[in-house]
C-alpha cells in the first residue's frame, strides 16, 4: 500500500458517498445517470467476486463490501425509491455499445482464460467507460449541479491517483499491471475535459457547471 493508492481509494469512497448523500438528502436523482450507476455496480460485482475466494487484508475486504453496498444502494435509490425523479429521457446513452466491446475484449485480452480472471478483466475495461453515460447526460442537459461536479471530480481523481500508484509500484517493486494501467489511462483521459471545466467554472463559484 502507498499514499497514492490510499488517497485514490479515499477519493473513490468520497465520490460514492457524495453521490449517495446527494440523492438521499435531496430525495431526487435529477441529473444523475442511472445507467452509469448500474455499470459501476456491475464493475464492483464482477471485480470483487474474489471476496469469496481469497483474503488479502481487512482493509481490502471492508472496502470491497462498502463499495458494493453503496453502489447497490445508490442504484436502488435511483430506480426504486426516487424513480419518479429519474430523468430516463436524458439518460439515453446506449450502454450496449459499451458492454459488447468490453465483454469481447475481456475474452481476447486477459491474463488467464479463467472465469474469475475474465470477469476481473471485464470489470477493468468496463470501469474505464462506465462514466460515459453520465458525461453524455451532462452534455445533453447542458449543465450539472455543482454537487454532481464534485462527485465527478473525486471519481476522476481516484483513478488518476491510481496511475501515480502504478508508477510508484513500478519504480519501487517492478509491479506492472498492463491491463489496469492502460484502462486507467483511458478512464482518466475521459475526465480531462471535465477537469478543465471544473477548475475553470465550478471553482469560480457559478453554482451550476454549464457546458459550452
Amino acid at each position: 500500500m502507498n499514499i497514492f493508492r490510499l488517497s485514490g481509494d479515499v477519493c473513490h469512497l468520497i465520490a460514492i458517498i457524495i453521490l449517495f448523500l446527494k440523492i438521499w438528502r435531496s430525495k431526487s436523482c435529477a441529473g444523475i445517470s442511472g445507467k452509469s450507476q448500474v455499470l459501476f455496480a456491475l464493475v464492483f460485482t464482477t471485480r470483487y467476486l474474489d471476496l469469496f475466494t481469497s483474503y488479502i487484508s481487512a482493509y481490502n475486504t471492508v472496502m470491497k463490501v462498502v463499495y458494493l453496498l453503496l453502489a447497490y444502494s445508490t442504484v436502488g435509490l435511483i430506480f426504486f425509491r426516487f424513480r419518479n425523479s429519474y430523468d430516463s429521457e436524458s439518460d439515453s446513452f446506449r450502454v450496449e455499445f459499451l458492454l459488447v466491446p468490453v465483454a469481447g475484449l475481456s475474452f481476447l485480452e486477459n491474463y488467464a482464460f479463467t472465469p474469475l480472471e475474465i470477469l476481473w478483466t471485464f470489470s477493468i475495461y468496463l470501469e474505464s467507460v462506465a462514466i460515459l453515460p453520465q458525461l453524455f447526460m451532462i452534455t445533453k442537459t447542458g449543465e450539472a449541479e455543482s454537487i454532481t461536479a464534485h462527485y465527478l471530480l473525486f471519481l476522476g481523481l481516484y483513478r488518476a491517483l491510481y496511475l501515480a500508484n502504478w508508477l510508484w509500484r513500478f519504480h519501487t517493486e517492478g509491479f506492472y499491471d498492463q491491463i489496469a494501467v492502460v484502462s486507467g489511462v483511458v478512464q482518466t483521459i475521459f475526465y480531462c475535459d471535465f477537469f478543465y471545466l471544473y477548475f475553470t467554472r465550478v471553482l469560480r463559484g457559478s453554482g451550476k457547471m454549464s457546458l459550452p
Partner: peptide
Amino acid sequence: SSDPIHHDEL
C-alpha cells in the same frame, strides 16, 4: 504480490 493475476488492488 507483483504478479498481476493475484489482484491485491481495489
